[in-house]
Amino acid sequence: MTDVITTRREGAILEVTLDRPKANAIDPPTSRLMGETFKAFRDDPELRVAIVKTAGDKFFCAGWDLKAAASGDAVDGDYGVGGFAGLQELPDLNKPVIACVNGTAVVGGFELALSCDLIYASDHSSFALPEIRAGILADAATIKLPKRIPYHIAMELLFTGRWMDADEARRWGLVNEVLPKEKLEDRVWEIARLLAGGPPLVFAAIKETARVAEALTFQDTMNKLSHLPTVDILSGSEDSMEGPRAFAEKRDPVWKGR
């Protein structure tokens, strides 16, 4: 697409790579471009899984481009259709997104990883939210992090801005796996291929249900479940019959997404 955002497509998988030396920081044009990229992924019926990665080994992403901000590009400017980094506020993204974290994920880079459904990290990766030292609210992380890891650990990271290495992130369940950097991408692609072979309508229903459930009680969510668009589509789909049929015929199911 551009030198800043490149994509690789393999079947139903889209790999999106951010490449902005030295720290893969994101300025407004890059954020808008990422939003258009993920919007196109969302709207392409042939694509089922996305991988988010960045170039280089030192920085996964340093978040907001402070040089852009210093030059007059306001922090609260136009991030684009998906909000910051294209994923944070993209509506109706009901497909799995995997973060491939190799290096430092700090401030908005940490929030970019949190915007994904699965996070795989290299063993030299680290995470931090040092906004507190500048008197700034890490808004998206403050909303998301206490829901992903124990509350007291999330508050410690937000209050102190301390660093968390990959092993600690794994202990708290923030990342799915920690691997040597030379094995990271192979593992991420292995998982992406596994998901690409799964039932896309069920994945969509899982993501919408989980998103709706964040703001509701268990019973309210259950009461609303049959009215969710993705659940309604799933219940009347060919795929809803394919699973039982494949089981009865002792074969692997063939998911068509319809």
Rank of each mutant, 00 (worst) to 15 (best):
K67H: 11
K67M: 11
A68R: 03
A68C: 06
A69G: 08
G72I: 01
G72K: 00
G72P: 00
D73M: 07
D73E: 08
D73N: 06
V75Q: 10
V75G: 04
D76P: 02
D76Q: 09
G77I: 05
Y79I: 09
Y79L: 14
Y79W: 11
G80H: 02
V81Q: 00
G82H: 02
G83R: 00
G83K: 03
A85S: 04
G86K: 06
L87D: 05
Q88F: 01
E89Q: 09
E89W: 07
E89L: 12
L90S: 06
P91E: 11
P91H: 02
N94W: 15
N94G: 01
P96W: 04
V97A: 05
I98G: 03
A99C: 04
A99E: 04
A99I: 01
T104K: 13
T104I: 14
T104A: 13
V106Y: 09
G109N: 05
G109V: 07
F110L: 09
A113K: 05
S115M: 00
S115T: 06
L118Y: 14
I119Y: 03
I119A: 00
I119V: 05
Y120K: 06
A121C: 08
H124R: 12
H124K: 07
F127T: 00
A128T: 08
L129I: 12
E131I: 10
E131G: 15
I132W: 03
R133Q: 13
A134V: 15
I136S: 10
I136M: 09
A140R: 14
A140C: 13
A140G: 12
A141M: 15
T142P: 11
I143Q: 14
I143G: 10
L145I: 13
L145P: 11
P146V: 14
K147G: 11
R148T: 12
I149P: 00
I149E: 02
Y151A: 13
Y151G: 12
H152N: 14
M155K: 13
E156W: 12
L157N: 09
L157Q: 08
F159N: 14
F159L: 12
T160M: 06
T160W: 09
G161V: 12
R162W: 08
W163F: 09
W163L: 15
M164G: 05
M164P: 02
D165K: 13
D165M: 05
A166C: 04
D167F: 14
D167H: 13
D167N: 13
E168G: 10
E168W: 03
A169W: 02
A169Q: 03
A169F: 04
R170Q: 15
R171D: 13
R171N: 11
V175I: 06
V175M: 07
V175E: 07
N176W: 05
N176C: 08
E177G: 06
E177D: 09
V178P: 02
L179W: 11
K181R: 12
L184Q: 02
E185K: 10
D186Q: 10
D186F: 08
D186P: 03
D186S: 15
D186N: 08
R187V: 01
V188D: 01
W189K: 04
E190S: 08
I191C: 05
A192L: 00
L195N: 01
A196V: 05
G197Y: 00
G198A: 08
P200Q: 06
P200K: 01
L201M: 00
